[in-house]
Design a protein around this nucleic acid. Structure first.
Lengths: 238, 238
DNA sequence: AATTCAGTGTTCTATAATCGAACACTCAAT
DNA sequence: ATTGAGTGTTCGATTATAGAACACTGAATT
């Protein structure tokens, strides 16, 4: 067990933290930033930002356009390739099958502190899919079916020991009995979601889920397909 | 222009560089590493690695399993979300259409120093696709159709001014005349590829490509579909 | 049960990397 | 020509960092 429960300790590695913050700011920025803007957003002197950005650029984690503006670079995609790599190979075929059979977007999301992070997604073959879930997007674990499914994989006691500050949703107990979690209008208005828990490498709680706009199909049947896929994914992961 | 041609300067930001190297090592590692193994691979003292890894863990860029072993974390997926974000939304529908219409894996790769980095991929709906191209994978720009297509978007002189150490392939001139690049058995034995150049945000040369095992279709027709998709992607990007 | 062993996590001080101000430079726009 | 907004570089004082040595944990061993 981790004896250090509270983790908001004094953070060392100032330069590293700042570099990561720069990348986080860039990832959230809707368009490329100038170095001065980025330095301002980071709250550091421009020369500090300049030195950090140069190092990040050396590793292709950011690139600069003709005007000198800065944006996330292809090196980030290379680093992210290793995230649950086994999960990608195991889950992709299942997600593809689910998305096409159900005509819904299917994805796997893992629990990360207060959020669920979507890792792998497959949209149905029909182009112009109504609901698109992008890899890397995050939403609060306390909203949406994936979060309920993740909580349903743990007892209320386990949850409180892992995340004391996040309440345990009553829907989780219901989801555990029923075998699947459901949500409507929680994350995006008009969008519903079904999810089942799945165990991924690293022991991190995760969820296999689909999103849809109109429920033309029986939730229980869809959930059964999800559970079957989840079982196959876990079997392949060993 | 950049007056500093040579860029292999003394690299400042030691801690940041080391943190990035840790992530690079982790991304390449086939399975989780202990802190001691990672410190050894980085060539630093264990306590240094420990401090760096703690900072990375604080940002969810790496996670640790029950045994204390370290692996890439979901935060990397969040950071990578911003990589050519507009490209994702613009290219995904086109890639999906190409993959399903041609029954080939379709992807967009950008030029990054000596490599092509695959950013967005869509596999055909038929599960168990023969050739799967993972996002974040990289291969030398001097091998494969995407590299040829990228070179074909530049004159030999432009190429040499941008990348003096990488030879300009003779196939690039042919690809420019013909309008598309082709390769066989270059990256993976038995696998062929067709590619056309495409301009992505940031002004980085890139390629839109498909890979396949047996060529049941006329390359020129496939290339025409690629070119049409590339034009639509560029139009949507503005 | 005592003992190794491999590993994690913490503390400390000399050292070396970093900070931030001031300056030189480029390139549009006025 | 002149402003202005931005990038890129230099340099001394400051401070974060490196790395050794140590404490701790748990599992395998005798």
């Amino acid at each position: 067990m981790t004896p250090t429960a509270g983790s908001t300790q004094a953070s060392p590695s100032q330069t590293l933290s700042r570099g990561i913050r720069a990348l986080e700011i860039l990832a959230d920025a809707p368009e490329p930033l100038t170095i001065a803007e980025l330095a301002d957003a980071m709250g550091v002197h421009r020369s500090v930002a300049y030195r950090i950005l140069r190092t990040l650029e050396d590793h292709s984690l950011l690139i600069r356009d003709d005007g000198g503006r800065v944006q996330p670079g292809p090196g980030l995609a290379v680093l992210a390739r290793g995230v649950a790599r086994n999960l990608q190979t195991a889950a992709l075929p299942e997600l593809t099958q689910l998305a096409n059979a159900l005509d819904m977007s299917a994805f796997v999301a893992v629990w990360d502190r207060e959020d669920c992070v979507t890792l792998v997604t497959v949209d149905p073959r029909r182009t112009g899919a109504a609901v698109v879930q992008h890899p890397g997007s995050r939403h609060p674990v306390s909203a949406g079916a994936p979060g309920i499914a993740i909580q349903s994989a743990l007892s209320e006691r386990e949850w409180h020991s892992l995340a004391p500050s996040i309440p345990y949703r009553p829907e989780a107990a219901e989801a555990r009995r029923r075998g699947y979690a459901a949500s409507h209008d929680e994350v995006i208005p008009g969008v519903s979601s079904l999810a089942v828990p799945v165990t991924v490498p690293g022991g991190r709680p995760a969820a296999l889920a689909v999103v849809y706009v109109r429920d033309a199909q029986d939730p229980a049947e869809v959930a059964a397909a999800l559970a079957a896929s989840a079982a196959r994914i876990e079997a392949q992961l060993g």
